[in-house]
Amino acid sequence: MATEHIDVRYVADLARIDLAPEEIVHFQEQLERILGFIETLKDVDVSGVELGTSLLPPLDHARADRAADGIGAAAFLKNAPDQAAGQLRVPKVVDA
């Protein structure tokens, strides 16, 4: 099982969350304690456990592939943080 060290700044970057310096210190301490507890799982003998042998229902069916009405652009854009010309507006993504 992995070590309980977690680089909170690095992982927050992966998760796309800017953390304040004091949040990083705080979460570092809390998450290391939580990961320390999670380490108890390494005591379990999981040899021979095949994944997929659970009580959960198998995902073995899909609904009929038929076109249906969506919510529509106007209803969608009602929740848009920023829009222009009937579309979502976002900061520039690609430099020309």
Partner: peptide
């Protein structure tokens, strides 16, 4: 972590 947890989940089941 994740794979081991899924296996323990199977044992709980």
């Amino acid at each position: 972590y994740y794979q081991r947890a899924q296996k323990v989940r199977a044992l709980v089941c």
